[in-house]
Structures are given as C-alpha cells and as structure tokens.
Design a binder for these strands. Sequence first.
DNA 1: GCGACAG
DNA 2: ATCTTGTCGC
Length: 233
Amino acid sequence: MMKPENIDIKDLEKEQIRLSSKINLKDKIPPQKVKLVAGVDVTFTNIWTNPTTSIACITVFDIDTFELKDIVYAEKKIDFPYIPTFLAYRELPVILEAYKKLKIKPDVFLIDGQGILHPRMMGIASHFGVVTDEVSVGVAKSKLVGNFKEPENKKFSAKPIYIDKQLRGYAVRTRKNSKPLFISPGNNISVDSAVKVAIRSIKGDYKLPEPIRTAHNSLQEYRKNLLKKKYKS
DNA sequence: GCGACAG
DNA sequence: ATCTTGTCGC
C-alpha cells in the first residue's frame, strides 16, 4: 500500500521521540498485586481499503479466577494506512474511544502489538500508556525489531531481546510447538514485570493471554454481525 | 543498494 | 489485520 504524500513521516517520528521521553520503566504496581488485567485488540471491516472502519474491543479479567469483569467496543472511521513502526496512528484512536467506555479501572492493559520493542521505543502499547498514563504491556505475535536466540521448545522458555545494549523485552514461548510471543513494557512497568503479568494472564494451554484472546475472539463475532447488518441496509 | 518490516 | 478446511503434533 502506498503511503499518502500528505502524511509527514518525519513529523510523526519527532512526535514519537518526544513521547518516548515520558516512558516510565519502573513498576507503578508490584506484579504480584495485579488482579484486573485488560486485553486490547483491533480489527477492520475491510483491510484493503482506505478509509476503512476500525473496531476495538477491550476486555477486563480477574486474573485469579479468569472471570470476565467488563467488555467494551468502539467503532471509528480511520484514514491512516498501516505503516511499520507507526501502527498507533492507525489503531490508537479507536482504542481510546473504547477505553473511555470502561466502567472499571484495570491494573494493567495488555495490548496486541509492541511496547518498547520499537525503533523509537514507541510501539502502540507504549503510545497508549504514555497518552493515558496507564500501566501497559505490549504482546506481539511477531517481531518488529531486535535479535534473539530461539527459546527452547517448551512452555515458558524465554530469551531476552536487546537493542543498543539495552534489555527491551523477551521472546517467550507460551506454548509448546508455538512460535514465541514478543513481550515488552508499554509504560509504567519494568521488563521483568511485563513478562510476569503477561504470563500470569494465560489460561490453561492457550498461547495468548486470556484478556487478549477473548478480545480477539469477541471482535470476530462483532465484525461478522456488523457486516451482516450493513449488508441488510 | 538490499532486506526487513507490530497490525 | 481477512478468508478457509483439513491436517499434523502433542
């Protein structure tokens, strides 16, 4: 997809660098005290067109009982294409709309994408965390930047990922025979705690943390019903 | 110049 | 990120 001429990448890079100075990599809450964990995911009615309609879902789980405590959705027309390292400019607007609808305040937000495992430390999880000042963690299904050694093929094997000699996150195999997840802090949390919280949010033998898994599944249903409704009218 | 590149 | 069925490895 061509990037429109009216998007000034240099300006967006400057904004990312400015926002990155606000990232806090210290724990705002001890990982053992975390109880309410949110999962954030986004989909689109049509990924091949611009503009398109973005849809966000945020779930909130009690991580001790894996009970769903809250679930909210939001829809928003978006006119920004997917450009690697600028994902937040496409997906954050609709996420913030869903965020406003939450009735309870989660301790941590797990977001589908990178945190500081990003060239300018501003993956979508960090961007969300800085803008809202919430505790956030990036949970990505594939790599954006950084090199890592392949974790052994057993549940919860992990390898550190360094960028510029700095520990930025971990490649974590959350399931045997599954590709690792790329976990990094978004904001207001340390690298180690980010991994601890994400792992503690995994139910049974699923690959993804339950809040994200449920948000993703719920979005599939929501989108299907939305397209059905649009087709009728 | 070439390849890599979250969702 | 969407669409889709069977199939393979625990």
